[in-house]
Design a protein around this nucleic acid. Sequence first.
DNA 1: GCGCTTACCTAGAACATCTAGGCAAGCATG
DNA 2: CATGCTTGCCTAGATGTTCTAGGTAAGCGC
Lengths: 111, 111
Amino acid sequence: MADDPRLELLQGTLDMLILKALQREPLHGFGIVSHLDKLSAAAVRVEQGSLYPALYRLEEQGWVKSEWGVSETNRKAKFYSLTAAGRKRFAVETEQWRRMSRAINLILQST
Amino acid sequence: MADDPRLELLQGTLDMLILKALQREPLHGFGIVSHLDKLSAAAVRVEQGSLYPALYRLEEQGWVKSEWGVSETNRKAKFYSLTAAGRKRFAVETEQWRRMSRAINLILQST
DNA sequence: GCGCTTACCTAGAACATCTAGGCAAGCATG
DNA sequence: CATGCTTGCCTAGATGTTCTAGGTAAGCGC
């Protein structure tokens, strides 16, 4: 792992990105992955093995809720949507992200 | 941990920040911590329990080297400095950081 | 010599993410 | 109708980083 390409997500950002993806409309797991992939120009690639545990985490916390339905391609799929608490949580996480990334950039820009 | 203040570092950024701190001059462990604390206006707080394992990691990879010396306050201290490989590594990590944070901000800014 | 601070070090837990699979069902093709 | 591709969900286990929570030692001021 010394010299891996490091496409991995920064830890702690996955939850935030998922919440963001659900901000517009409910999506199923597969949809979340392709949504993020598209938006980030493939810079962010979420593995399913990371996604589903994250979704359960979010659901357990009450930030998203799920409902079985039928996908656009006529397969059964579990649709996740934001709860009110989830919207609040999203605001909190983005604020933390901004603060942390600002601090890091500050350090990087110092002489 | 659901509602902790989350002052924790984003995973993967610690190494980069340490390398950055050593860019100007060799520092001992204690010095690195206070340096980062000062530069980030206390937004980044590195615990010693995180720092030392990270330093050993960096040394093992050949990105920093260490030498025993005497601190400004006349105590013995181990001074860490960047190697040539460490400088290269720092460039790689900052590039990765920039790419990832750009991608995340892109996603956050989407409608 | 006592307490404070600087300074180093470690073991263990917690946690997120990735790897690497497996399962099932729709759909198209022959 | 069988085969294969794709969509879609799910899990176990490994890996790696960071944090918690300690301990040790030595200089300095009083």
